[in-house]
Design a protein around this nucleic acid. Structure first.
Length: 341
RNA sequence: GGGUAGUUGGCGGAGUGGUCAAUCGCAGCUGACUGUAAAUCAGCCGACUUCGGUCUUCGGGGGUUCGAAUCCCUCACUGCCCA
């Protein structure tokens, strides 16, 4: 039996220290990082998404300021016909470097474009062989559990692309109507679906329109695996995480997160779009529109992030392959062992 | 000292004789999730519970009433106004 290529996964809730650990391990084991973060893919969304700081090029060395290029400035290449090609933005120097480590999946599209799990899966499955070819260790690191699972479990998605017009139309109806509609078309899916969840209902109907009904996800246990994963997650006590979240939030404000959101809006991103990104982008957009007061915004945002971390934990907890490590220093040994045989 | 408004579950805040263990919001807890996943959505949230119920709550005490968070008396505390 030939051995499967190995991939390291670093998961954990927001503010748990994933990125730092990933970089440490990348340095130690000669790796490249694939960010699995549904918001860090966007250019110009830096402070609010907590991107690792990009290495400044030798030319602009000494630029200690947190100033980052506005996405509109670097956005000069016009999208090509190929959707994925168009979406995956090629940087001049080829990649996003932080602490000398190559990061994929950061700054790959503009905030007015969509990039979903299926896109990510394609993207990552393209990058992984490239990284392996360079004899480097692929490290998938990020907080978007679903995206990570798409890779680790090689999830199969129905071949139905989002139909924005259809979605817009369906969105006008309420969940009762949508559910009734789904019951008629695909009772099986209807029986299993969350009947109050509009997003799910709309997607189900979208698939039905194309395929007649929603295919049952196949059992991934039967699938042949192409990679071997070591999945680690940072286990940070709730109280500690709270403190880290608050501290990080304060820092982000100091670094000019508000300005970042303002800039995004000025470069053409609608408030509605910004709000749809959630967390900092939603709350700051609301504040900038005078929908909420500053103190309300700060308060809400803090709790939003706490809740988000909680949701992440709920997701992560049901992954039986995750190894929870209370201390980041434990990771090294585990990775070493993983890479041995 | 006089007047006045108030005191409700962790917080905010409804409720003004029975259908109130007490609307609702926040916080808290648990969970769902196959192309929006930082999104979207669900349940629990006084105590005990064999999940049908049982018990103790609405500042303290005393009353009225078949029955009070809701009415009366009184005490305490808080805010505002007049001294």
């Amino acid at each position: 039996m030939n051995k499967l290529p190995k991939i390291l996964v670093i998961a954990g809730p927001t503010a748990s220290g994933k990125s730092t650990l990933a970089i440490q391990l990348a340095q130690k084991f000669d790796g490249e990082i694939i960010s699995a973060d549904s918001r860090q893919i966007y250019r110009g969304m830096d402070l609010g998404t907590g991107k690792v700081e990009r290495d400044s090029s030798s030319v602009e060395r000494g630029a200690h300021s947190m100033k980052r290029e506005a996405w509109s400035v670097e956005h000069e290449s016009t999208p090509k016909s190929n959707e994925l090609e168009a979406k995956s933005y090629k940087l001049k120097n080829g990649s996003y470097l932080s602490a000398g480590i190559v990061h994929h999946g950061i700054d790959i599209i503009n905030p007015d474009q969509d990039f979903n799990v299926a896109d990510f899966k394609k993207y990552a499955l393209e990058k992984i062989p490239e990284i392996l070819q360079r004899k480097k260790l692929p490290i998938i690191c990020g907080g978007t559990g679903f995206w990570i699972q798409a890779i680790t479990d090689n999830l199969d998605f129905p071949q139905v692309k989002p139909d924005l017009d259809l979605r817009k139309n369906l969105d006008r109806k309420n969940t009762r109507q949508l559910f009734a509609q789904l019951q008629k078309i695909d009772p099986q899916r209807a029986a299993a679906i969350d009947s109050k969840n509009k997003v799910r209902l709309i997607r189900a109907l979208e698939i039905c329109q194309k395929l007649g009904k929603v295919p049952r996800p196949e059992n991934n246990k039967l699938k042949t695996k192409s990679y071997e994963f070591l999945q680690l997650a940072l286990d940070v006590p709730k109280e500690v995480l709270r403190e880290k979240i608050q501290k990080r939030l304060d820092e982000r404000f100091e670094q000019g997160m508000l300005q970042e959101v303002q800039n995004l809006h000025q470069s053409g991103i609608s408030w509605q779009r910004l709000e749809s990104f959630g967390l900092e982008y939603r709350r700051l957009a609301e504040f900038l529109q005078d929908k909420i007061s500053e103190s309300k915004m700060q308060e809400k945002l803090f709790f939003d992030i706490i809740h988000y971390a909680k949701r992440q934990m709920t997701w992560l907890k049901k992954n039986p392959d995750l190894i929870w490590i209370p201390d980041p220093n434990e990771a090294e040994k585990l990775v070493e062992k993983f890479l041995e045989d």
